[in-house]
């Protein structure tokens, strides 16, 4: 797998990370190196190995259906750049 500048540009946009045009090619080369390094794992024969979901053998933890949280809108809104009547206020998003 190899990464080109166009891919970096697209991924950056999807991730909402601003990348200047001049940075695209160097970033592509860096990411390419990382991916190739990871790809070495493909050399190991894992045909008979079950995928591991966790280092420790454990199951998905479950909880009972009880209301045990919430009720602190001031905390939820504490970091909001802007709020009004208990709502977050953001730039108009019109579909």
């Amino acid at each position: 797998m190899s990464v080109d500048a166009a891919t970096v540009k697209r991924i950056a946009k999807l991730a909402r990370i601003r990348v200047e045009d001049g940075e695209l090619a160097p970033l592509a080369a860096e990411l390419d190196t990382i991916l190739h390094w990871v790809e070495q794992l493909g050399e190991v024969n894992t045909a008979s190995v079950e995928p591991m979901n966790s280092v420790m053998p454990m199951d998905l933890k479950r909880r009972a259906d009880q209301v045990s949280d919430g009720g602190y809108p001031e905390d939820v809104l504490a970091n909001a750049p802007e709020q009004r009547h208990g709502f977050f206020v953001v730039h108009k998003i019109v579909e």
């Binding site: 209301v67 045990s68 949280d69 919430g70 905390d75 939820v76 709502f87």
Partner: peptide, 22 residues
């Protein structure tokens, strides 16, 4: 009564942002 991954209430018609866990 509560959400899929948190203990906040699911009741309809609450005041804004009251039924929100961290």
């Amino acid at each position: 009564k509560s959400k899929l991954f948190s203990g906040a209430s699911t009741e309809f018609g609450a005041e804004p942002n009251t039924q929100v866990s961290l």
